[in-house]
């Protein structure tokens, strides 16, 4: 692992080079991660609150065509989509976001390999940054991450002072990417960066570990039927805010959309397990007929099924779902409460 230093001015130049090179640059904005057109739009602040929405839509868009079709008398012609994976750089990803594509890759490459996702991820460079935020909804430390976690980042920034960042090159992809920008880097001071991350780990901004995910997994295995779920379900409104802002929720729906009688396309659209219609059968039967069962699914999928199948927790502890929930349902509190029942 290499370590260098970059100052803000050079970082700006580097960003300008990325944009001028015809690549896409994405950085946290007010509501969501936005595409940066001018470097003056970049606010790089380790203490900023996580955006309301994650950046998963840059690899797994909220709505995307997967195939076009055209009907001609008796024939149907199918036209493949040409997925153009453009080089995309995410600057300033929080550790609770940077890991998301690694987690998502598991499910998108399990039996069927999702080219749409893979093509885009292949062209991604994730520049993560140490986080100095943490509010009461954060719980990255309970799911095996932390504000200084480099997991998922190709390059990791550590703010050293107002003006300078330590640059850690984590992956080969990151190394290759940085090669052409060597002129903006100066020699690093690994001692200083290490001191900074160590200080971060013991600072008040480090979310407290509130549950043991293995205990939670075991509890979930034994308590499928538990009145605990009904109490949550009665308050939850069955929207999909929580799923749609989550960096690792990945359900989608396939629908055909016609443009005329002859032409149309097949769409892959985000879907969410909290919708009542999500599990509704054509017969009218709904196996998850009440909200309690749907909320149970949400927690089980994240903290049991995904762990059993892929060895990863389907949650990065970012706390987005709780911050945005219209009825203030706090997933951190619920998961910690499971084992107390």
């Amino acid at each position: 692992m290499e370590e260098k230093i970059i100052n803000r001015e050079n970082l700006n130049k580097l960003c300008r080079d990325i944009i001028d090179g015809g690549n896409i640059l994405i950085a946290p904005g007010k509501t969501e991660y936005t595409v940066i057109k001018d470097t003056s739009e970049i606010i790089l602040d380790a203490g900023s609150k996580p955006t309301k929405a994650s950046y998963k839509n840059y690899a797994f868009p909220k709505a995307e065509p997967v195939i076009y079709y055209k009907k001609d008398k008796n024939d149907i012609e199918l036209i493949d989509i040409d997925i153009k994976g453009k080089k995309t750089v995410i600057l300033g990803a929080k550790p609770c976001d940077s890991n998301s594509f690694d987690i998502l890759s598991k499910v998108f490459n399990w039996d069927y390999k999702d080219d749409f996702f893979n093509m885009r991820v292949k062209n991604f460079i994730v520049i993560g940054m140490m986080c100095e935020f943490a509010d009461k909804y954060c719980f990255c430390t309970s799911v095996g991450l932390s504000p200084v976690s480099e997991k998922g980042s190709d390059i990791f920034l550590i703010p050293l002072d107002e003006n300078n960042f330590a640059v850690r090159i984590i992956t080969d992809k990151g190394k290759e990417f940085m090669e052409s920008y060597g002129k903006y880097l100066t020699e690093g001071n690994p001692e200083k960066a290490k001191a900074k991350t160590e200080a971060g780990k013991s600072s008040a901004k480090m979310p407290e570990k509130v549950f043991n995910s293995e205990e939670v997994r075991k509890w979930l295995g034994k308590n499928f039927e538990h009145p605990f779920w009904d109490g949550i379900g009665d308050v939850c409104l069955s929207c999909a805010q929580c799923a749609f802002v989550c960096p690792v929720c990945h359900c989608f729906d396939i629908v055909d959309e016609d443009y005329s009688y002859e032409e149309g396309r097949r769409m892959k659209n985000w879907d969410g397990c909290q919708f009542g219609h999500f599990t509704l059968h054509a017969s009218g039967h709904n196996p998850r007929d009440i909200q309690g069962k749907r909320y149970r699914q949400r927690i089980n999928h994240k903290f049991k099924y995904y762990v059993d199948k892929f060895g990863e927790i389907l949650c990065t502890g970012c706390g987005r779902c709780s911050r945005g929930c219209p009825v203030s349902i706090d997933i951190k509190e619920i998961v910690s409460d499971t084992v107390k029942n």
Partner: peptide, 11 residues
């Protein structure tokens, strides 16, 4: 910007 989460409807 809408992501069709229907939180507006649910609330």
């Amino acid at each position: 910007k809408c992501i069709k989460c229907y939180a507006c409807r649910a609330a």
